Lab assay of single mutants.
Amino acid sequence: MLDDRARMEAAKKEKVEQILAEFQLQEEDLKKVMRRMQKEMDRGLRLETHEEASVKMLPTYVRSTPEGSEVGDFLSLDLGGTNFRVMLVKVGEGEEGQWSVKTKHQMYSIPEDAMTGTAEMLFDYISECISDFLDKHQMKHKKLPLGFTFSFPVRHEDIDKGILLNWTKGFKASGAEGNNVVGLLRDAIKRRGDFEMDVVAMVNDTVATMISCYYEDHQCEVGMIVGTGCNACYMEEMQNVELVEGDEGRMCVNTEWGAFGDSGELDEFLLEYDRLVDESSANPGQQLYEKLIGGKYMGELVRLVLLRLVDENLLFHGEASEQLRTRGAFETRFVSQVESDTGDRKQIYNILSTLGLRPSTTDCDIVRRACESVSTRAAHMCSAGLAGVINRMRESRSEDVMRITVGVDGSVYKLHPSFKERFHASVRRLTPSCEITFIESEEGSGRGAALVSAVACKKACMLGQ
């Protein structure tokens, strides 16, 4: 009897593995994704193909990295998701002549009506938060230079001027797309009239992360975010950046690689679950690469896999709870928690219980395998993109072996128990001629924006502006 049951459990697990095998990517698959990513990057950089390229390769006008001589107080704003952060950054000489960066910050959550109302409502709310922060720190009387981390696709015309191309991540505030974001912020500050600010720089969160990590390690020339969304930036040779005049030196390019796949480059790798996630998203047909990796989508992918296993009578005796059938019910943090389970399955059992399920031991094991399959594919897909960037940098610099540091931020990278190990191992397999160091950014977005502002202020002083 026991043997029969054991055989049935083994057969069930084997069927589960057959279904989950769809998520496995072979090294040849990853090399294919990497080569296609490089081709799209090239198209994004070139003037004649930029418009139709899915990977936009947006110039950021960040050319210099901090040298350690900029000092002063800077205000930093960070808008990239449902939370908005205001930070005071003091850049100065530390002990023994070292450079020191001290920060104080406060988080504000953005109400739904500000995210989806008008641009005026959104930026009025942001300036209200700045006003509140300055009151708390008794700094209303000071006109501070301000660095703005704005983590949406922007076409820069200068370091302090950028046109919002399109909202992502659930934002829909009308009247912002096609307009200068810094102008919208300046107008809102003017409307309030109770404080003055000098907006000197606007950067993407990947750029802010790279600059913040450069402060720790001067070989950091790539910034990457794996959180709600997924994106990367890197220092490109100016001669390859056709959208900006000049051939000397390097400029940081914001790849906006989340949109890779929007022209069909990933079609052969998309599964039924991916198509369902895409169809029910706020932007169907867009940001397809990001939807395979980002935390906004990972939990939902797992939920759809679990429903398939229920329908195949391989999980929960073929019956799903009402909660499990509800879109968004299986949160991405559950994926991390399930994979963090120590082996007694308590954590998995508790999560499934909150979803109205009474799982068996085998159910718990199957749910864990589903989570591992989805998150491992995410790590491997992400590795193909980064390997594409790094191999490109090595080739354009004609280096036999390139040493490089990548600064990384984002909740999936930082909080998932195995993502970074799987990701690092896969990147290294795909970049055999590179020695890569990964560092995690601390308060990256805010500190990085302030350091970019410090560079901009120093330049302005040198130019006598």
Rank of each mutant, 00 (worst) to 15 (best):
D4W: 06
R7F: 14
E9G: 11
K12C: 14
K13S: 15
K13E: 13
L20Y: 14
L25C: 07
L25V: 10
Q26P: 13
Q26W: 12
Q26H: 12
M37W: 04
K39W: 04
E40V: 04
E40L: 06
L45M: 03
L47V: 06
S54C: 11
V55S: 02
V55E: 01
M57W: 00
L58V: 05
V62F: 02
P66G: 14
E67A: 06
S69T: 08
S69W: 05
G72D: 00
G72R: 00
L77Y: 06
L77I: 07
D78T: 06
D78A: 10
G81A: 15
F84H: 02
R85K: 06
R85I: 10
L88V: 05
L88R: 02
V89R: 01
V89T: 06
K90Q: 02
G92L: 08
W99L: 11
S100Y: 07
K104R: 05
M107E: 06
S109G: 09
S109E: 12
I110V: 13
P111G: 08
A114T: 15
A114L: 13
M115H: 14
T116F: 12
A119E: 10
A119I: 10
M121D: 11
F123E: 04
S127M: 12
S127W: 05
E128L: 14
D132V: 06
F133G: 02
F133C: 06
L134Q: 04
D135P: 03
D135M: 07
H137M: 09
H141F: 11
H141E: 08
H141R: 03
P145C: 11
L146F: 15
G147A: 09
F148T: 07
T149N: 15
S151P: 12
P153M: 15
P153H: 07
V154T: 10
D158R: 09
I159K: 08
D160H: 15
G162F: 14
G162M: 10
G162E: 13
L164W: 12
L164A: 15
L165T: 14
L165Q: 06
N166D: 14
W167N: 13
K172F: 06
A173K: 03
A173H: 05
V181P: 06
V182W: 14
G183I: 08
G183V: 04
L184A: 12
L185F: 06
A188R: 04
A188K: 02
K190R: 12
M197R: 00
D198N: 01
V200P: 02
V203N: 00
T206S: 05
T206H: 01
V207N: 01
M210T: 02
Y214S: 07
Y215C: 00
E216V: 00
H218L: 01
Q219D: 15
C220V: 02
E221K: 04
V222S: 01
V222I: 02
V222G: 01
G223A: 11
M224V: 15
I225P: 00
V226D: 01
V226N: 02
Y234Q: 09
M235I: 11
M235R: 00
Q239I: 04
G246E: 03
G249C: 03
V253Q: 00
E256K: 12
W257N: 07
G261A: 09
G261Q: 04
D262I: 10
E265R: 08
F269T: 03
L270D: 08
L270T: 06
E272D: 04
E272G: 02
Y273W: 13
R275D: 13
L276E: 09
D278M: 12
D278F: 04
E279F: 15
S280N: 13
N283M: 15
Q286K: 13
Q287H: 12
K291M: 11
Y297W: 13
M298K: 05
G299D: 13
G299E: 02
G299I: 03
E300F: 01
L301S: 12
L304P: 00
L304F: 10
V305C: 00
L306D: 00
R308P: 01
E312C: 14
N313K: 08
F316A: 05
E319D: 08
A320I: 15
E322K: 07
L324E: 00
A329G: 15
A329S: 15
A329F: 15
F330R: 00
F330H: 06
E331K: 13
V335Y: 11
S336A: 15
S336V: 09
Q337K: 08
G343R: 01
R345G: 06
Q347D: 09
Y349I: 02
L355I: 03
L355W: 08
L355P: 06
G356Y: 03
L357V: 05
L357W: 03
T361S: 09
T362Y: 09
A370W: 00
C371G: 02
E372N: 05
S373Y: 06
S375I: 06
R377Y: 01
R377F: 01
M381L: 12
V389M: 04
I390Y: 02
M393S: 14
S396F: 09
S396W: 07
E399K: 12
R403Q: 08
R403S: 11
I404A: 05
I404K: 05
T405E: 01
T405I: 02
V406Y: 00
V406P: 00
G407F: 02
G410T: 13
G410H: 10
G410M: 14
G410P: 10
V412F: 09
Y413H: 07
K414N: 12
K414I: 09
K414E: 09
H416S: 15
P417T: 14
F423A: 14
A425V: 07
R428F: 13
R429S: 15
T431L: 10
S433A: 10
S433E: 10
E435A: 06
E442C: 13
G444Y: 14
G446S: 12
A450V: 13
V455S: 13
C457V: 14
C457I: 14
K459Q: 14
C461L: 14
L463C: 11
Q465E: 15
Q465F: 15
